[in-house]
Amino acid sequence: MPTPERLESFIAAVEGGAHAKAIEDYYTEDATMRENQAEPRRGRSTLVAQETAVLDRTESVISTCVRPVLVNGDHVAIHWIFEFTFKGGGKMRMEEIAWQRWEGDRIAQEQFFYDPAQRKPG
């Protein structure tokens, strides 16, 4: 179960734009991450590589945690809004719920729930 301080530190890292670093610092080595009902990606190094690939296509990302964050033991739900500006000028706004299972002070499983229609850059 994450401490309130650890959870706030994670949120601050993401809101501060350290997306790939947050995965390195806050996820277990064998963590999984899943988009809606897709097959999960497995392993922290895979998750970091995927995040880095997404970030390489962006000019900027503004990440906002919409409060409250819901915590029940090892389970955490975070409502996020991400505003992407892509290289070349396209923009995209993603709103999602991240459902996490923590093991101690690290995220072991995460699943994102969002409307896939949002993934079309504007």
Score class of each variant (00 low, 15 high):
residue 55 L to Y: 15
residue 38 A to G: 04
residue 41 R to L: 15
residue 70 L to S: 09
residue 53 A to P: 08
residue 53 A to D: 09
residue 42 R to N: 13
residue 38 A to Q: 05
residue 79 H to P: 10
residue 80 W to K: 01
residue 50 Q to D: 05
residue 31 A to Q: 07
residue 67 R to D: 05
residue 71 V to Q: 03
residue 81 I to S: 12
residue 43 G to K: 13
residue 44 R to T: 10
residue 80 W to C: 02
residue 70 L to C: 06
residue 72 N to S: 05
residue 52 T to I: 10
residue 41 R to W: 15
residue 67 R to V: 01
residue 49 A to P: 11
residue 57 R to Q: 15
residue 35 E to K: 05
residue 79 H to D: 12
residue 67 R to A: 02
residue 61 V to S: 09
residue 39 E to L: 10
residue 68 P to A: 09
residue 58 T to A: 10
residue 39 E to T: 14
residue 46 T to P: 10
residue 48 V to P: 06
residue 59 E to T: 09
residue 79 H to K: 14
residue 61 V to Q: 06
residue 71 V to R: 09
residue 53 A to C: 12
residue 65 C to P: 01
residue 81 I to W: 02
residue 48 V to N: 04
residue 51 E to I: 04
residue 63 S to I: 00
residue 77 A to F: 09
residue 51 E to V: 08
residue 80 W to G: 02
residue 58 T to W: 01
residue 65 C to T: 03
residue 62 I to Y: 00
residue 42 R to I: 11
residue 76 V to K: 06
residue 57 R to N: 15
residue 75 H to A: 14
residue 76 V to Q: 05
residue 66 V to R: 13
residue 76 V to R: 05
residue 58 T to P: 08
residue 70 L to Q: 08
residue 42 R to L: 09
residue 59 E to Y: 02
residue 75 H to R: 15
residue 38 A to D: 03
residue 60 S to W: 01
residue 31 A to F: 01
residue 61 V to F: 04
residue 31 A to G: 07
residue 67 R to F: 00
residue 57 R to Y: 11
residue 52 T to D: 06
residue 76 V to L: 10
residue 57 R to A: 15
residue 80 W to S: 03
residue 45 S to Y: 05
residue 69 V to Y: 00
residue 35 E to T: 11
residue 52 T to Y: 07
residue 53 A to N: 11
residue 48 V to K: 05
residue 67 R to C: 01
residue 41 R to I: 15
residue 38 A to M: 04
residue 49 A to V: 10
residue 76 V to F: 03
residue 53 A to M: 12
residue 31 A to M: 05
